[in-house]
């Protein structure tokens, strides 16, 4: 039986972690690799590096970050942000990333999922879906650009399509819950969980350790991702896992 996974997400811009982090034990809290090692020691099951660099140089730096991370980390990690072509995937996976995550570029050109999956295997390809409830459509729709632009895709339909094209895992972020710290979006996660048969990472809304229990236990997400509550030490990976363990959830 697989354990439920807890995944911290690190936003990286021009090779540096953004979102002020104050861990006294770290020499350089802006260094993605230092922070990654810290989370590894805390018991993180996996990591996501999200490249939010705007420039070409920033993206080049990301390849170095990946190489450094792969040299120092003994847990799997995913890299997302700005991946538009099979070549982009190749560079990051060859530098040592275990998986790549695609979002807007896959919506613009869905074949990108198939190309990556055919070349590297489905297990390397994560499709990130930013979903938001739409009153008008009476369902969750897929958005891009941080929730600003609405696409024509219903979230559940896009999830099915992404898996059909070869996605090995889905990273489902609720744009309604993101930043609210009131818990993960359980109905959204459940809807997508029931529509596909690949692992689901729930994201957006984690505010405390109990929230992880709800999404992992009640709607059976395979993994839960959070950023700021770990970075700002509102809780820790170790605390979340202890709590899950106490409540009988299978974690490592």
């Amino acid at each position: 039986m697989l354990t439920k996974r807890i995944i911290p997400c690190l936003d990286v811009k021009e090779g540096r972690v953004v979102k002020g982090v104050q861990f006294v034990s770290l020499r350089d809290a802006g260094d993605p690799v230092e922070l990654a090692k810290f989370y590894n020691e805390q018991g993180a099951d996996e990591l996501v590096f999200l490249d939010i660099s705007a420039s070409h140089e920033g993206r080049e730096t990301m390849v170095d970050v990946v190489r450094q991370a792969a040299s120092n980390l003994a847990i799997p990690f995913t890299v997302g942000g700005g991946i538009r072509t099979l070549e982009d995937m190749k560079r990051l996976l060859r530098a040592g990333a275990d998986k790549v995550s695609v979002n807007s570029s896959a919506l613009q050109r869905p074949e990108l999922i198939k190309e990556g999956s055919d070349y590297f295997g489905a297990q390397c390809i994560v499709v990130a879906i930013d979903a938001k409830w739409s009153e008008e459509d009476d369902t969750w729709m897929v958005y891009t650009h941080g929730g600003r632009n609405k696409t024509d895709w219903q979230a559940v339909a896009w999830a099915k399509e992404a898996v059909k094209l070869g996605a090995g895992e889905l990273l489902v972020t609720s744009m309604d819950q993101d930043g609210e710290k009131s818990g993960f979006d359980l109905p959204l996660t459940k809807a997508i969980r029931e529509a596909v048969n690949v692992p689901i990472i729930a994201s957006g809304g984690a505010g405390n350790a109990d929230h992880f229990y709800d999404v992992l236990q009640h709607v059976d997400a395979d993994a839960a991702l959070a950023a700021s509550i770990f970075h700002y030490k509102e809780t820790s990976v170790a605390e979340v896992k202890n709590k899950l363990r106490q409540k009988g959830v299978f974690v490592r």
């Binding site: 697989l2 354990t3 099951d45 090995g168």
Partner: peptide
Amino acid sequence: AGINDDGIAYRVPHMGWNE
């Protein structure tokens, strides 16, 4: 197979931490 003897589906790939 992605489905067990009781007819219950399980995820494929087998991806994650197992004991």
